[in-house]
Amino acid sequence: MFISSSSTCTVNCRTVVYFFAGILTYRNNFEAAAREIALRYANVKIVTIFPYGMANGKKGSSLIRLLTKQLSQVGYDLTRDRSRRVISATQIIREHIEDAENILFIGHSAGGVIAYRTGLLLEEKYGVGRAQIFAIGCPKFYLKDIPYNDRFTYITGQNSDRITRIGSWRMPGSRQYRGKPGREIQMDFNPIHQGWRFHASYFLESVWTDSNQMFHTNSTDLITKIHELYPGN
């Protein structure tokens, strides 16, 4: 984990925002979004957590080995509520949120799974029930029908993202796993990106023009939507 240089607060912060990275993520992948967070939330600490490690410095066979390891870990996390990565993230987060009024978890891809499960562990074990959870381009996973889901927002894009087609919220025939996110939102992102590039572009400063000749950037539009849903006032 590391604290973003875009943070405007380090101690006794009113708002703490955590980005949870998925697989094959580099250290600076969330920095454009972090700058947008700093523009919208006062006295904010911005922390990035890499549950599956960073891809910085990995090339060729070492990158393939990292990917193989990460995919195995993701498969494990999709089916278990409290993996080692969830427990570790929870321990890290408890060091930063004691005085925070607003807590936001923003997870990308498999990081969205960790964000959801970390928030739930914080609530159930430590009584921290104010975190707002946002999962972006995340695979689906079985959800219990619990009030906690009201604070869980699932965001996808207009293009076909194969990661978001993985899994399901509800387990067929189960009376326990029949929940769903409090909100499911589809947004428009830069249409030039296709396939895996689209999946990787949600948080990037990717500039594009819509049919009305209005300029957008992916990171700006995404954080604007999150702030609209949870202004933190």
Rank of each mutant, 00 (worst) to 15 (best):
D161G: 03
Q213G: 01
A100Y: 05
P139L: 11
D210W: 02
D221E: 01
T224A: 15
S168G: 10
F152H: 08
I103S: 10
G129D: 15
V128M: 12
E95S: 11
I223N: 08
T209M: 15
D145A: 10
F141I: 01
H216Y: 07
T153M: 05
Y142G: 00
R82V: 04
H193V: 00
T224E: 14
G112C: 11
S88A: 13
T118K: 08
R151F: 09
R170Q: 15
W169N: 05
S160N: 14
G111A: 07
F134L: 05
F215T: 10
A131W: 05
I155Q: 02
R117E: 07
R82W: 06
S109L: 07
H227A: 12
V207Y: 12
A131G: 08
T217A: 07
E98W: 03
Q186A: 13
R130S: 11
D188S: 13
S201N: 13
N212G: 12
R117C: 05
K144F: 03
P147F: 07
L229A: 11
E205A: 10
I114N: 05
F203S: 06
R183L: 13
R178Q: 14
Q158I: 08
F134W: 04
M214Q: 15
S160E: 12
R94L: 13
S201R: 09
I103F: 12
V86H: 01
R151G: 04
V128L: 12
P147E: 06
R151D: 07
N218H: 09
Q176G: 01
A131K: 01
R117V: 01
I136M: 03
N212E: 13
E101F: 00
H96V: 00
T209D: 09
L222D: 03
R84F: 05
Q194T: 13
T217K: 09
I136E: 06
V207M: 11
S174V: 00
A100W: 04
I136H: 06
D145G: 03
I226V: 12
A115R: 11
F141H: 07
L143Q: 08
E123G: 03
E205N: 15
I114Q: 01
Y177M: 10
T153S: 11
I146R: 10
G157F: 04
L229V: 05
F152T: 06
E228C: 03
A131C: 09
Q91F: 02
